[in-house]
């Protein structure tokens, strides 16, 4: 999940994209952590997480909330995605109140994450920043495709799948909702943000309409 900081996009799109990782540490708080992790997932649901899951079971978009929660064991790392700042502030407030005692890692636009911390009296401890992509960047797909593929840190959403679904959306072969669901499927950890995806697909459609207009 290191890769959450590399979620690609312009700041205006990243406004709709936060993730929280809930994780135990071996030799510190792993033993007996199962109920706490389950509680975190309940709180994520309460605060309108748009996706959540864990790597060993799958994501809520594919297997449903009960199965994700049921699959939690001591030490399972779980994560949830949110599409607005208020929900993040609210879940952080609850986490402060309930003091579950596991590490909480918040990802988003840095200044927004700082605001969330300030509003909940939390102090950032250790940061992980992205210095972007280096090397043969000419091998990368176009920015809109990258916005989708980098949501899955494990790189399981294929460029070819994103391109095909963009094409299907442009040709009216699928709905935005169905397209977003399809793209979320390969990402088993539940890190795909369907709200941001739908906005992105709308943008892709608008762009193709403009291109068609210009061709006329």
């Amino acid at each position: 999940m290191t890769h959450t900081i590399h979620r690609y996009g312009k700041p205006e799109d990243l406004e709709y994209d936060y993730s929280i990782i809930f994780i135990s540490a071996r030799n510190f708080n792993r033993q007996g952590s199962q109920p706490k992790i389950r509680r975190f997932l309940e709180l994520a649901q309460k605060h309108h997480a748009v996706n959540f899951g864990n790597m060993e079971a799958g994501s809520v978009l594919v297997i449903g909330p009960e199965k994700v929660i049921e699959a939690v064991k001591d030490g399972t790392t779980v994560q949830a995605v949110f599409s607005n700042q208020e929900d993040v502030v609210n879940i952080l407030s609850d986490l402060v109140k309930e003091d579950l005692g596991l590490s909480v890692v918040v990802q988003g636009l840095e200044h927004r994450v700082r605001e969330c911390c300030m509003r909940t009296n939390l102090k950032p401890h250790t940061w992980n920043h992205s210095l972007g992509i280096w090397g043969k960047t000419e091998l990368l797909p176009e920015p809109e495709v990258l916005e989708v593929t980098t949501m899955c840190g494990h790189g399981l959403v294929a460029v070819s799948l994103v391109k095909k679904i963009f094409e299907d959306v442009r040709n009216g072969k699928t709905t935005l909702k169905k397209a977003a669901q399809k793209l979320a499927k390969p990402c088993i950890c539940g890190m795909i943000n369907p709200v941001r995806l739908e906005r992105l697909l709308e943008r892709v459609m608008e762009k193709s309409l403009v291109v068609e207009e210009e061709k006329k």
Binding site: L14, L122, P124, H129, L131
Partner: peptide, 23 residues
């Protein structure tokens, strides 16, 4: 570290993650 990277001209992405000390 990020101040150093910026000073040296390396672009830093706007999103980042942090632990918030709740462990």
């Amino acid at each position: 570290n990020i101040e150093i990277a910026r000073r040296l001209g390396y672009p830093v992405r706007p999103n980042a993650k942090t632990t918030v000390g709740l462990g």
